[in-house]
Write a protein that binds this DNA or RNA. Structure first.
Length: 242
DNA sequence: CCAGACGTTGTT
DNA sequence: GTCTGG
DNA sequence: CCAGACGTTGTT
DNA sequence: GTCTGG
């Protein structure tokens, strides 16, 4: 799954790189985004969508945690992940998966590998340094009294491929650059585009352990994604400190 | 019919 | 243990 | 996802 | 909104 990720590129750098896949991409209205090495649920995150066929692809900031349009209390139910295997069967995702698909760009994401009773965070990114595009859906909640509509999103997940399995058994669904435009096309049906979501080639990604300091979402600095130095393993030394 | 839930993750 | 906040 | 709080009264 | 359970 995906419960934490990083977008440390500036919004302009990000847009520039993604325009290779989506040449018409407009940065507005996401220009105010503040890059982060440690993005946690409930944060405002960069998304790319196309509201209507006549519109270009646009970046927007949506709150991470999908609040369905019918929710009475927008704080009660807000899944950050949606299982791609069952997304078509759940009424609460019907409209989002059919008409409100989006991309969530990231420089990389975090995943925790269980190591006995401990959990070791890993950072996973594309080997070529380009941003990866995670598959998302969004919805609009208009229950606020006269306030602006609340726009929220969630990231699709799937079973890990063989490359990812040693770290974790679930992973975010990633969209190949060639499939990005079709994923966002509001005129295509969900049944049409879901088969486009194939796991990335094994050599496309790289992963390495990072310091557990990033466990706390309050830590947001380059150290969050710095490769963990190999633990010294001197005979006689206490190995299990932390 | 109305009322109430509607999600994921992981762990046992 | 369970919920909220980041 | 993980971390951190989880309560009341009254006073400034 | 839409489905399930009573």
């Amino acid at each position: 799954m995906c419960g934490r990720f990083a977008v440390y590129s500036t919004i302009e750098e990000l847009a520039e790189l993604i325009r290779e896949a989506l040449p018409d991409l407009e940065v507005e209205p996401a220009r105010g985004f503040v890059p982060s090495y440690n993005i946690a649920p409930s944060a405002a995150i960069v998304t790319i969508g196309r509201r209507r066929p006549e519109h270009p692809h646009r970046m927007a900031l949506l709150k991470w945690g999908l609040v369905p349009s019918f929710a009475k209390d927008p704080t009660r139910m807000a899944p950050i992940n949606v299982r791609s295997e069952t997304v078509l069967t759940k009424p609460m995702f019907r409209r989002p998966i059919e008409r409100q698909r989006c991309l969530v760009p990231a420089n990389g994401f975090f995943e925790w590998k269980r190591a006995g009773s401990r959990k070791q965070p890993y950072f996973i990114r594309r080997a070529d340094g380009r941003p990866l595009l995670m598959a998302g859906i969004y919805d609009v909640w208009r229950g606020g009294e006269g306030g602006a509509p609340l726009m929220t999103c969630a990231i699709l997940t799937t079973d890990s491929n063989d490359w990812m399995k040693p770290i974790h058994h679930r992973m975010p669904v990633m969209v190949a650059p060639e499939a990005a435009a079709r994923w966002c096309d509001p005129q295509r049906s969900a049944a049409d585009v879901l088969p486009l979501l194939t796991p990335p080639p094994a050599d496309a990604l790289e992963a390495y352990p990072v310091d557990a300091r990033m466990n706390s979402p309050r830590h947001d600095d380059p150290a969050c994604i710095a490769p963990l130095p190999p633990a010294p393993d001197v005979p006689g030394d206490k190995v299990d400190s932390e």
